[in-house]
Write a protein that binds this DNA or RNA. Structure first.
Lengths: 220, 220, 220, 220
DNA sequence: AATGAATGAGGGTTCATTCAT
DNA sequence: CATGAATGAACCCTCATTCAT
């Protein structure tokens, strides 16, 4: 169940060489990418095995061969997107720096970067969120994700508050993080539902503006 | 209009249950409520006609009698929830008062009131949002709703800013509203996905806290 | 293309019977034959997908796999019977001979041959004729057929008339053909409706008798 | 089960007077007329109870009240058309005359009269013939009809032959009648399927032309 | 490992029939 | 008698899954 990032195959590829490092893993990746594309294009409920395999340029039976069932493929797709997000996040958090403000800004850049909030990924997020209420497994995958990012973000803000002297000591890091997290989620929703009115740049600006209203010009 | 070839039905029908005619509008309402419950319980994609009609205690054919198709029932259900929300909102906005701050506070109360963010309604919102990307009709119903509320909220905030003298004149009402709207949406998502960690009271507090960080203690 | 909301199918499928892949064209032929049999046995309006596939010894989904819809299968069935008829007719017409009388006699043999007016084919013809009035596509398929056969038959009779010297010059080939064609159709109807009283041999005799009343003993 | 001809009601009629001679019989007639219209307009297989009752301007339940079932209504409709035809036929046959030729001509007039071969009646005939093979009851009603007319027609022709002296004694009245009957049926089919090319006048001409080829100018 | 024709349970929809009004 | 809202069996069609090739 290793999900390290690999060169993505989107076109039908038919390698003829016998010794392939991880052909099975490549197929899985290929199918997950096709699934993401289908969900983004036609919605979760209209995404069929036939669509997915056609998009991947493969045969119908391949999914059950590599994922056992459609349900498992969907779960792996959600997990894939989730872990990709988490990995990017962790790369930023774990970067060795003492400048909390800079890290926070970098995180915001990341949250609204093209690779994360591209319409395909967004569509996947919301498709699964829409079903999460009635599918505990989806909820679990998303929640675990949230929990981890939120915890590290609280630490980060606490560092920042502590570094600011007495002026911010009255601030509640957890409250701030809850607010910022909700704000980001809400902006993602806007990016998905009304892409004409909400852009990634504007979303970032709104977040920075919020931080400014709390911390002053530290984030400009 | 339909010219598909249909077999002659000769089988006798012997319903065993009692039937009682009801005003069409009542039946529609009854079916919409059953639909909401089903979506909340099992998710949009698992909601079948059989489930809905069983939930309503009626027979399978009734939906097509009153809504023509499942798709139309779903649309009407979304519209129902949307309009119920909009009606509550308008009642508050159009209440005759000069106290913009009070109106804003009332709106926040409303946004997180039990009747609006009960888990059933939330599930419906997000279920449809998850499909909105690939179903223009859903997007349209939701977008129309957003546009109207946002416009009146901007006016409201502008009034409030203007009433506050020079201290807030630098504030951008539209930016504020975009932020607050996104915040509310994000908090709704939290209420749906992690009801254990996010409560309606906490959500309201987060919003007020945000307003406080912008306007100071005007909303406490 | 289809955007109806569909529930996720999670139920496992465990087919109990053996399956054997066949060339698509063979399957189509097999299904068309089953359709003909069903129409003959139970009538067009009682012919269901379940009946057809059971008759063919196949599963329900196979029709939509090979014909897209029931309607298309029915159309192809009509076309099949029609073209089979037309092919036989053309074989006779295009056979290299100058003896128009012999060709006409051969055509009559053909019109009432067992392979054409077997009760199954007749049932198919009349089943579709009965629906033709309200289904332009059926009418079109039948009409095209009629037009072609009628034209070549007129030519044939004209040759025959011309070859007979002055005695038949007053005859109207088109009128003759209209008469003969209607006669054949009417006899087919008798063969279908009252097979006890009308036989293929008798039908042929009636036609020859008609030709005799026009041309004298040329056809005996 | 009296089927005497009555003033036909085609528009929704709501009599307010209490004492009606045969209101039930009127309703039956009204429904049968609506059924004929529906079959002619949309074909037998697309004719639903809802269509019929709407066409009649009555309520859905009325058919089962007066005919017990749809099937019975269809049978009565076929019987109605059949008996109307038979009645017209008998009126001609039983008219007191010794001029067989004149009677035969009158019968041909009748066979292609507007009231008999109007497209609505034709559609009904062929609709039922198309189903006759698999519905013995339809076949029975049609066959009974045929039998009766055929017998009296044979007698008629026999009279005519006998009246002609020795020149026609070699003619077989039964064969003639079989031919003429089939011819008429075939022409009806043409009138139904290709009304553009076949007219009532032309059909009559074809029949007369046939009789001429047998009997010479006796029918001109 | 890969294919895709075949399967069949389950979906939405239709419509003859019923029965409370 | 008459109505038409309600019923539910049976229809056609979809699509996740299987397995002979």
């Amino acid at each position: 169940m290793d999900h390290h990032l690999k060169p993505v195959k989107t076109a039908p590829v038919t390698p003829k060489t016998k010794r392939r490092a991880m052909p099975a893993e490549d197929r899985r990746e290929q199918l997950i990418q096709a699934t993401i594309k289908c969900i983004a294009t036609q919605g979760l409920s209209s995404t069929t095995m036939a669509h997915i395999t056609k998009e991947a340029g493969l045969s119908m039976g391949i999914v059950n061969l590599h994922f056992e069932s459609k349900e498992k493929l969907l779960i792996e797709t959600l997990r894939h997107v989730t872990e990709e997000y988490l990995r990017g996040w962790n790369d930023i958090i774990s970067a060795d720096t003492d400048d909390a403000a800079a890290t926070i800004k970098t995180l915001l850049e990341f949250e609204f970067s093209a690779s994360i909030v591209c319409k395909e990924k967004l569509a996947v997020w919301f498709a699964f969120w829409g079903e999460a209420k009635s599918r505990p497994i989806y909820q679990k995958i998303c929640a675990k994700n949230d929990k981890r990012t939120e915890d590290s973000l609280v630490q980060l803000f606490q560092h920042f508050i502590d570094s600011g002297g007495s002026s911010w000591q009255h601030l509640d890091a957890e409250l701030l993080v809850s607010t910022l997290t909700a704000l980001v989620d809400g902006l993602w929703l806007d990016l998905l539902l009304t892409p004409r009115q909400m852009t990634r740049a504007k979303a970032r600006e709104i977040c920075l503006n919020y931080l400014t209203s709390v911390f002053g010009n530290q984030f400009q």
